[in-house]
Amino acid sequence: MPALPPSSPDNTASELDTGLHAQKMARIKAARDRMMATKEGEKGLVIVHTGAGKGKSSSGFGMILRCIAHEMPCAVVQFIKGGWDTGERRLLEAHFSGLCQFHAMGEGFTWETQDKERDIAAARRGWEKAKELIRNPAIRMVLLDEINIALRYDYLPLDEVLTFLREEKPPLTHVVLTGRNAKPELIELADLVTEMTLLKHPFRAGIKAQPGVEF
């Protein structure tokens, strides 16, 4: 099809639409720049990833990889999936152990161990290691993977965790807590909370957990 001449009505409408779009984007940019000019502070964040949907741990590990890319020392404490051979664990231990400590403290989900006292002891060991790592101001981010499950089953005292995060976390250290059913008190304390919503999952269609997707 030959090009429309400059005076074509269709060309004029297209140019008008382009101009209006440019004006709209310029207004949005100006408003965004004004808003960003007021954001100058930095602080270590308490970040919660919760909800029934998939992606809570995955998002936490994505933040850990960002820290590694910025050469920021970081650490992971896994409270539940300690016995799993996960891709994240393989990658971090094999290639980034100099920047990221990895501590798998759990022994599996509570229905696998079927031993409450054993689960409580494992969670306690994980929390003691977590406190040690968080107290170290050289470590910029600590991921507490699936700690919300330990808190849900009362394997750890919620008040102790909240008090520690409120009073002992260094000012510039980020702490990420993942797992479904985050306690309301933890959500209230946190600076950033994301709830993963389940809309559809292959498990319900008979598809098992697969490498690269779930672990």
Rank of each mutant, 00 (worst) to 15 (best):
E160A: 12
F96W: 11
V161A: 12
F215D: 14
K29L: 13
E93A: 03
A69R: 14
I28S: 12
A22P: 00
T50C: 11
A182G: 07
H49L: 15
L65R: 15
C100E: 03
H70W: 06
F203D: 06
R135Q: 13
G41H: 10
L186R: 04
I68G: 10
E167K: 03
A205F: 09
S58A: 15
G82N: 08
R166S: 14
V175K: 01
I139L: 14
E214G: 10
L99N: 12
K129C: 01
K39T: 03
A104P: 11
T86K: 09
F61L: 08
L198H: 04
C74I: 02
K24Q: 13
R66Q: 03
F203N: 01
D85A: 09
T18A: 15
P170N: 05
A121F: 02
S8K: 01
A205C: 08
S97A: 13
E107C: 07
H95L: 09
G83C: 14
I149V: 15
G106L: 00
L91I: 08
I207V: 15
A13F: 00
P211H: 02
P184G: 11
A30L: 14
L92V: 02
C100F: 05
A205N: 10
V176M: 09
R124F: 13
A209T: 05
L158Q: 05
F164T: 00
P157M: 07
I28V: 12
A130T: 02
E132N: 09
K43D: 12
T113E: 09
P171L: 14
A209V: 04
C74S: 12
T38Q: 13
E88K: 07
F203V: 08
G83K: 11
K24L: 05
E117Y: 03
L144K: 02
Y153L: 11
I149G: 11
C74M: 07
A123P: 03
S8R: 00
H201T: 05
I207F: 12
E195D: 01
R166N: 09
L16N: 08
G108E: 10
A22L: 12
A94V: 00
N11G: 04
F79D: 02
L158K: 05
Q210I: 07
I147V: 10
G44L: 08
Q114Y: 03
D159A: 09
Y155H: 14
E146G: 10
L158P: 04
L156M: 12
V213Q: 10
G106C: 08
N181I: 00
K56G: 09
L16T: 03
F96N: 10
G44K: 06
L158M: 05
E93G: 00
L20V: 11
K43Q: 15
A94E: 14
E117S: 11
R125A: 06
E40F: 10
T173E: 05
R135D: 06
I149M: 13
E168L: 02
T12L: 15
R140P: 04
D191S: 04
A13L: 08
L4R: 14
D33R: 10
S58D: 03
M35Q: 08
L4N: 13
G55Q: 09
E117I: 05
E168Q: 10
E214S: 14
L133E: 03
G83S: 11
L151S: 04
H103I: 01
R89P: 00
I47P: 05
M35R: 14
D85M: 13
G62K: 08
L156E: 03
S7M: 01
E128P: 11
K39R: 15
L156I: 01
